[in-house]
Design a protein around this nucleic acid. Structure first.
Lengths: 139, 139
DNA sequence: CCCAATCTGTTCGTATGCAAATGAATTGGG
DNA sequence: CCCAATTCATTTGCATACGAACAGATTGGG
């Protein structure tokens, strides 16, 4: 027999995840104000993998087709990415980093690592490793 | 000397947090389609604390003033909450659960606990406790 | 007791995030 | 080889999220 009073909001994993994510986003925005976390993820992926079709890029950054389109549109407006039709497959839109996009990622990658470190700072090194290992299994 | 190639997107805590949150939201939406996670958090808090002013409710559910307004508006449109001016302080808007809101939370609280359990299901009991303890320290 | 500082709610703008529907292009199995 | 199924990109609608600016109400310290 479970009563509603047994539902402790503050102990629910989803609620805590939301709050931790909020803190992380604040730390990121403070450290890298030029782009958002999702935009930075796109820059990182393109930097690592080279040009990708828009939908493929979305899958590689865990965004659905509608979301990645908006992110790419905004990055393109910022001059950090460009798009061009794929002659091989006329459905596809190939997304690439511009020089400015590549340079921005290059200049901010180290800061990005510090953002991750700040987010995890309340834990000691051993706890951070345990936490990341457990978190990754929940994907 | 850090090179951009040292920035492994898949290992960054923010990226993994986003993916775990996505999985959690999917599980929740499947189990409790009537409301969203944030709306359910509001129902839970009101059920636990009784009527609260709108901004206070926002602080108690980790939403800023603009966000909680939208959530309360939608819950009110769904008939799950009501609002009335506070005669003590004419700036304040008191938010309460309706009977339907109280009943819905009562009927879904147990399911909410199962959603949390499903999200954590890839870990064994001991790992779940460790994970939640570490996660809570990152708020 | 009064006014500057604060609090409350609202609105606007921007940015994810997903479901669903659509049209165009490609592909794979019979 | 051809058509049904799939893929790709786009659009619409809805729901968080937050910063910034605003007006009205309240309060606290001099």
């Amino acid at each position: 027999m479970i009563k509603p009073t047994d539902y402790a909001l503050d102990d629910q994993v989803g609620y805590i995840l939301r709050r931790v994510t909020q803190r992380h986003l604040t730390i990121f925005a403070e450290a890298i104000p030029e782009v958002t976390t999702t935009q930075f993820a796109v820059l990182a992926r393109l930097s690592q993998r080279g040009p990708l079709s828009q939908n493929h890029l979305g899958r590689e950054t865990s965004m659905d087709a509608a979301t990645i389109k908006g992110v790419v549109d905004r990055l393109t407006k910022l001059g950090l990415t460009t798009t061009k039709p794929d002659p091989e497959d006329r459905r596809r839109l190939t997304v690439s980093l511009t020089d400015a996009g590549a340079r921005l990622f290059y200049e901010r990658a180290e800061t990005g690592l510090r953002v991750s470190a700040s987010t995890l700072a309340p834990l000691n090194t051993e706890e951070q490793a345990s936490f990341l290992a457990l978190l990754a299994r929940l994907v």
